[in-house]
Amino acid sequence: MTFQSSIAPQAGTEYGLRVESASFGYGDAVVLQDIELAVREGEFLSLLGPSGSGKTTLLRLLAGMAKVTSGRIVCRGKAVEGPGIDRGMVFQDYSLFPWMTLRENILLAIDRVNPKRSRLEKQELAEEYLGLVGLADAREKYPFELSGGMQQRGAIARALALGSSFLLMDEPFGALDPLTRMKLQDLLIDIWGHSDPPRTVVFVTHDVDEALYLGDRVVILGASPGRIIAEYEVDFPRPRSRAGFFKAAGFRELRDRVLEVFRQDAIKQLEYGDEVKSAGEGI
């Protein structure tokens, strides 16, 4: 498989990734119930939900890392049976291999996608991807020599090096300090905006501001069982300036609406939680 063929969308497919009445659970425990979701080709979709809403599980289903108990996942018209390099994933925990330098980590992805290229070409490609996330100078460093933010940049570079059309990101900036987090958000948007052909991003977070600032669309999951409870278009032009965006009246209104949805779900959780507690479960 070449870099190009994995990127180019098939003609006539409107939606890149579809979740069709998918459920997931272990035994009697239902984690996700009847999820219907269509991720458009080229869009930046934020998946927002409290802990326990199964947002990570949903992302793993999209990646093919877990299998639905009913329903199905479709990627460009084909049912997802397992992981594929058309769907790259970035995890919350720094996921570079600690025994390899940054460059060796990236080369792992490059070897996979361009096995026939010469050693030198692969090295150059690796450096290109590291340059893209501003890590060109750190290429010979090991992950433990890097800050959390740099490690996460490396993880993004590796996902890019896979040449995936779909980037599935599981709270990738969850463990970073606020300033680093903002820098990486802007970097991600910049890379996504300049992708040619366009990439599709599914971004899982529990941070409302992050979901709205990054996303074209925000899908909100409720907990117990995980299900989609609301969906909003984020109709703000790009490039979005951080200062302008967070001050805009439209943003504040949207934010209030999202938080209200959250609150409603949380209240339901608390009431439901009391019942559970009396049975001695879920503590």
Binding site: P83, G84, F91
Partner: peptide, 12 residues
């Protein structure tokens, strides 16, 4: 699990 997931995502 993190490393195993990584290996799967990379399609090793």
């Amino acid at each position: 699990a993190q490393y195993r997931d990584d290996a799967r995502i990379l399609g090793l």
